[in-house]
Design a protein around this nucleic acid. Structure first.
Lengths: 190, 190
DNA sequence: CGCAATTTAATTGTGCACAATCAAAATGTG
DNA sequence: CACATTTTGATTGTGCACAATTAAATTGCG
């Protein structure tokens, strides 16, 4: 019922700290935590709505994404699914097993390359497309976003993801092959 | 290595369908899927960076959020943690068990209300705050976002989450107690 | 050809999100 | 007081994300 979305980091100062003061810590805390938190909230809200909308199809959202790729690309190796959806085999393997158990797909090893498992739709899986065609419009309507809103959001998110990926790559695993001396600094001077 | 973020729904038509034509399906597909997908990508990028940054503290991101609340609010019932962080007990219970196993918190039933379990920090958990104080700044810097970017993003995400929550509430479980006749409208007149 | 490195997918284990169910205690009602 | 409801938290089961390891097959090199 609480229509509001009380942030977890809602510290006591409401509208202040608008200047570039010494309050950098609080400000940074708000900056990062609120972004990440509202991001997760939106992500979960999407998942919840997809859960409702996809219930009749018997699909979860990640399963629906896999089916979208299969409907569009046809038979394809698991590797390709992982590239399109940014999912690794640890996620895809059990997911595909469940889709096979549901009778929507078949897994078959490629004759040309014994290592590769190819996923292809069953007649049932192909038929499901007809029931799924209304989903995108339904979800899009639920967002209340027009094309401009969506574009603004996607641009911001893409930029954010790129920056975060870069930072993670720089921070993690810098077992410098030669001189791993630095420890304290490592602040970005880019 | 692929620095780009090739969307999974990257259908063959680049910049067309700008008018409100019959092509609504493709457009809607792009609208909803690309938003949700880039949202998840950003969410996972945040998680990955937090994973790197928090590794030294031995915390995951949700555990870090719990510690933030405890550092700010002090001893508090589990119920309060769930409200602040929008997590249910099914998520918090095992999480808090792991924090207790790590020696950062203690769980103790309230004397006044036997049902309520109160979480309080150990000396070790309190001390961890010193090591954590740099985290927000680090993350905020990694986003590359200034105050304006962050505000724009948060506003969009908050609006999106609200719209999605409303839609999910209306779509799911409309077993109307008395007159379930209405199907199209059902607008809330509360 | 023989053998190491690479690729591809599976497997295992940890952690989080969520739904469903259960138990205990407080509260409300007849 | 007896009984239903509500609240609070735990428990269980499913599904996804991710890291680490393993296995099988291909590729590259001497």
């Amino acid at each position: 019922m609480w229509a509001g979305y009380p942030d977890p980091m809602d510290t006591p100062h409401p509208g202040r700290v608008d200047e570039q003061g010494e309050t950098g810590l609080d400000e940074a805390l708000l900056l990062d935590s609120q972004i990440c938190f509202s991001l997760n909230a939106a992500s979960r809200a999407f998942a919840a709505l997809y859960r409702v909308v996809l219930k009749d199809l018997g699909l979860t959202y990640p399963q629906y994404l896999v089916m979208l790729v299969l409907w569009e690309d046809g038979t394809t190796p698991v590797k390709h699914l992982g590239e399109r959806l940014r999912l690794d085999s640890g996620t895809l393997s059990p997911l595909l097993k469940r889709l096979e158990a549901a009778g929507l797909i078949h897994r078959r090893r490629s004759a040309a390359d014994e290592r590769s498992v190819h996923i292809h739709l069953t007649a049932e899986g192909l038929a499901l497309r007809e029931q799924a065609c209304h989903v995108p419009r339904h979800i899009a309507a639920a967002t209340g976003f027009d094309r401009q809103d969506a574009r603004t959001l996607r641009v911001l998110l893409t930029r954010l993801t790129g920056a975060l990926d870069d930072a993670a790559r720089h921070d993690e695993a810098p077992p410098a092959p030669a001189g791993p001396a630095r420890s304290g600094g490592t602040e970005e001077e880019r």
